[in-house]
């Protein structure tokens, strides 16, 4: 298989059920392209998914997949990484509801832990699978079935949140820029530490505001400017740029110790490789005599 590893190697017999034209299709392509380019085989990667249109993708991609509950892909992914750091990639996938609504706390804690996990958030600024309600990233004034008179809350800023909590790789992709997204994913997997890629993924069925055309008018790539993703203050400024111009690309990257680096018990084998033979309780029993 390795010699002819290609994008089809990552397919399952189940065909995607997303709406024709949905941004999920492009992310699905970019993710598989990235893995193939990195020569990672399906059994060397673990994916965790939440619940939402994006996470139905658990059925369309081959690998070791933990299709968790709504909001919970991250804690599952973190534990997979701690217990088997030898996997080539651990990728958590969720929507904006999973990531910035019900599972928000997990996201902040994963940032500060710097666990070696790539978090790919499919951010369509709406709840799609439940047929269109306002999400934590919906803009103020956004009208939906749950806010027919307009959303009166400010949206979450995922990138600013990641930056302020110690994430060491903070990026934004766009489902309309597959090649660009592929390269972000490759860098995100290569990055040692927690990597967030928040992906704008227009929901063509329910979000009639943040459409492909709306994004195309606004987005530009940081890589095409002289921006350097090494300065947290600049990254912070860029993360707040959400007006008529919206940056895509790598906002910030920093090399620092991952969770794994800090644990001497993981220096040799992965936790899953530890022998369970000849366990001796004497040391633990010492203080109870």
């Amino acid at each position: 298989m390795p010699e002819n590893l290609n994008i089809k190697s990552y397919e399952t017999p189940v065909k995607p059920s997303w709406c024709p034209g949905c941004g999920n299709h492009a992310i699905w392509v970019a993710l598989r392209q990235a893995l193939v380019k990195m020569k990672i085989k399906p059994w060397e990667v673990a994916f965790t998914f939440g619940i939402g249109c994006n996470s139905n993708g658990a059925n369309f991609i081959k690998g070791y997949i933990l299709h968790a509950l709504h909001g919970r892909p991250l804690p599952c992914a973190e534990a997979i990484r701690w217990t088997n750091h030898k996997l080539k990639a651990v990728i958590a996938i969720g929507g904006d509801g999973d990531s910035f609504g019900i599972g928000l706390s997990h996201f902040i804690h994963a940032c500060r832990r710097n666990v070696d996990v790539l978090y790919l958030t499919h951010d369509n600024q709406i709840y799609g699978l439940t047929t269109g309600q306002t999400s934590p990233t919906s803009v103020k004034g956004f009208k939906s079935k749950s806010t027919p008179f307009g959303n009166i809350e400010e949206p979450i800023n995922p990138l600013a949140l990641a930056l302020s909590n110690g994430a060491s790789f903070v990026a934004r992709g766009f489902a309309g820029e597959t090649e660009h997204l592929t390269s972000l994913i490759i860098n995100g997997i290569k990055h040692r530490g927690f990597a967030l890629i928040d992906v704008f993924q227009p929901c063509i069925t329910f979000n009639h505001l943040n459409t492909f055309a709306w994004f195309r008018e606004r987005v530009y790539k940081l890589e095409e400017t002289n921006y350097q993703p090494t300065n947290k203050k600049l990254a912070w400024q860029k993360s707040l740029e959400l007006g008529h111009k919206i940056p895509l690309g790598l906002f910030y990257q920093e090399r620092k110790a991952t969770y794994f680096d800090e644990l001497p018990q993981l220096k040799k084998e992965a936790l899953v490789e530890k022998s369970l033979k000849n366990i001796n309780l004497n040391k633990a029993l010492e203080e109870y005599q």
Binding site: R72, P75, A79
Partner: peptide, 11 residues
């Protein structure tokens, strides 16, 4: 969820 994730890998 962490306990479940860890168990999924075989630990």
């Amino acid at each position: 969820n962490m306990a479940i994730g860890a168990s999924f890998t075989g630990v």
